[in-house]
């Protein structure tokens, strides 16, 4: 049974390279049962969006408003 540390590691790895189907299956099962990791998954996407926006200078635009 996958634990949260393993699940978060997989979710992080998936940001670089798609997971193998069988691995993904195990992860999805864990996510169905674990609200913390379910939230973590959404936050990984948010983190990437925020970081890219920051890199593009979005923070500077906001400071000016």
């Amino acid at each position: 049974m996958m634990n949260c540390r393993e699940a978060t590691k997989l979710m992080s790895d998936a940001q670089e390279k798609p997971l193998l189907l069988k691995t993904r299956f195990g992860l999805e099962i864990h996510l169905m049962m674990c609200s913390g990791c379910h939230n973590f998954k959404e936050q990984m996407d948010a983190l990437r969006t925020m970081t890219r926006a920051y890199a593009k200078g979005k923070n500077e635009q906001e400071k000016e408003t």
Binding site: N3, F40, E42
Partner: peptide
Amino acid sequence: KGFWQVDERPVAW
């Protein structure tokens, strides 16, 4: 066991 500590578990944002 590798599960989230109770007070570290991610909340909805």
